[in-house]
């Protein structure tokens, strides 16, 4: 029987109230939203907060808003909402691709994007998505809001730049013209963490060349936020199978997977290669079909 150690509980009724509770109870207090990462860790006594600050009533943090060149997503937005959002899928099909594979439908009913990012698990899918989409994160603390780029959010596994007296409030994805994206993941079964996954976003130039690209990998120990050599190889080139193969080869070389019960190092490198080819191909296909539908 897994039961968390004893703790105190408070429910915040506003963001300011949550910040006040965090300030009051100090660094041994934790924000809880969906709870599907924190509660399992508390049951295993890997996390032992003295206070839980429940932010589930903060509906201000649960929104998807188009705002000029940005899509703003509240940190409390549930996985199921992101999965089902046509606005999100229209701008960033990578999000729906990833959400389909995150945990299972019941977990997605509770889990939130903010919780996923703040858990900072190296095998977490939305972190890769946010790297690929060059997300910015809005973090609120006692002195107001600050914005950090995704590549600065994680200090390392399970560690973020969100301070104990701060709350991640919003994720912002830049909306780019002539762009599409894709994500694909190999998992052993529904609900498992990725054996490996890859995501890419592609922007086309007027001459049909790939003007800009980002490629991210999940669960294979990629050093840095994106596969930079693979990106450099693709940028400025005409899309082709040979180009995808070269990007896959470089991504596989540059990642650093560790053998575990999900597969050998060689197998994971193979996946990094193959999945990178697939997401590039898919993102370009999506762009072509959008362009055809629009012409």
């Amino acid at each position: 029987m897994q039961i968390p150690a004893a703790f105190e509980y408070a429910r915040a009724d506003s963001i300011d109230h949550a910040l006040q509770l965090l300030a009051e109870h100090g660094p041994e207090s934790r924000v809880i939203a969906g709870g599907h990462s924190l509660l399992p860790m508390m049951k295993l006594r890997l996390a032992n907060p003295e206070w839980l600050i429940d932010i589930n009533d903060l509906t201000d943090l649960e929104h998807i808003t188009e705002d000029g060149d940005w899509l703003r997503v509240g940190a409390l937005t549930r996985h199921v909402t992101l999965l089902e959002s046509d606005i999100v899928a229209g701008h960033f099909p990578i999000v729906r691709d990833a959400e389909k594979t995150i945990a299972d439908p019941l977990v997605r009913n509770r889990g939130t994007i903010g919780g996923s990012l703040c858990q900072a698990d190296p095998a977490e899918d939305l972190s890769t998505v946010c790297h690929v989409l060059r997300a910015e994160l809005v973090i609120r603390g006692p002195n107001g809001d600050r914005t950090v780029p995704m590549k600065e959010l994680h200090r390392g596994p399970y560690e973020t730049t969100v301070e104990p007296n701060e709350i991640l409030t919003e994720i912002r994805w830049p909306i780019r013209a002539r762009s599409s994206s894709a994500y694909t993941k190999v998992e052993r079964r529904v609900g498992d963490w990725a054996t490996a996954a890859s995501g890419a976003s592609v922007t086309m130039g007027s001459g049909g060349q790939i003007e800009d690209v980002t490629i991210g990998l999940t669960a294979v120990g990629l050093d840095g936020s994106t596969a930079t050599r693979a990106q450099d190889a693709v940028r400025g080139q005409q899309p082709s199978e040979e180009l995808y193969a070269e990007a896959g080869r470089l991504a596989a070389e540059d990642c650093n997977p560790v053998e575990d019960q999900r597969g050998t190092e060689a197998y994971k490198r193979h996946l990094a290669d193959e999945l990178t080819r697939r997401v590039l191909r898919k993102a370009v296909e999506r762009l072509m079909s959008t362009a055809e539908a629009g012409s």
């Binding site: 509980y9 429910r11 809880i32 709870g35 599907h36 509660l39 399992p40 839980l52 429940d54 589930n56 439908p105 019941l106 977990v107 009913n109 509770r110």
Partner: peptide, 19 residues
């Protein structure tokens, strides 16, 4: 342990009763 919370299925082993 699935139950419906406000009509939505959730796993009740991963929801605190206070929540």
């Amino acid at each position: 342990c699935t139950v419906l919370m406000d009509g939505v299925p959730v796993k009740s082993c991963t929801v605190l009763a206070v929540m």
